[in-house]
């Protein structure tokens, strides 16, 4: 099944922004919660394998939304529950691409059996078992909070 037959996959420019929705359970343990200044590194992780196989079998990477097709508020509202359960972080694309070997690629979702259409959907790719901890830490320093829905 082609998930994006009606939406062309585009090249994402370096100076565009990407957003990532974060469930509050990722950050509720932080000592500064709920008034966090820094983005924690644990939010940059691929979904569990079983979930991924069910929903995103062919995609490897961390999901984000491209600001050409989504605002931070729209990214927040794509969550399954009320917006107070989520936050949104953001970064410029070149900041992510400056971390070797990461890239940001457009991967729109269209007519998926289980996921809602999302033209903004994109992926941060390049994570491996060997680099995951250091890469996550570096990414945490590249992203900033856009929305903290729990505030």
């Amino acid at each position: 099944m082609n998930n994006c037959e009606e939406w062309e996959i585009e090249i994402i420019p370096d100076d565009d922004f990407i957003f990532r929705r974060i469930h509050k359970n990722f950050v509720i343990n932080d000592s500064e919660f709920p008034n966090m200044q820094k983005v924690p590194q644990n939010v940059f992780n691929e979904p569990q394998k079983s979930w991924k196989e069910e929903y995103l079998a062919k995609w490897d990477g961390v999901s984000v939304d491209w600001d050409r097709y989504s605002t931070a508020e729209e990214t927040l509202k794509r969550g399954k529950k009320e917006s107070t359960n989520y936050g949104v972080i953001q970064s410029e694309v070149f900041q992510v691409r400056s971390v070797q070997p990461l890239d940001v690629i457009h991967q729109p979702i269209k007519n998926h059996e289980k996921l809602k259409d999302n033209r903004a959907h994109s992926l941060i790719t390049g994570f491996t078992l060997a680099n995951k901890v250091e890469i996550r830490m570096t990414l945490a320093e590249k992203f900033t909070w856009s929305i903290q829905g729990w505030l």
């Binding site: 359970n25 990722f26 950050v27 343990n29 932080d30 000592s31 924690p40 590194q41 644990n42 992780n45 691929e46 979904p47 569990q48």
Partner: peptide, 9 residues
């Protein structure tokens, strides 16, 4: 002060 942060896996 350290934090214990949960990972999806």
């Amino acid at each position: 002060i350290p934090s214990l942060l949960p990972i999806s896996d």
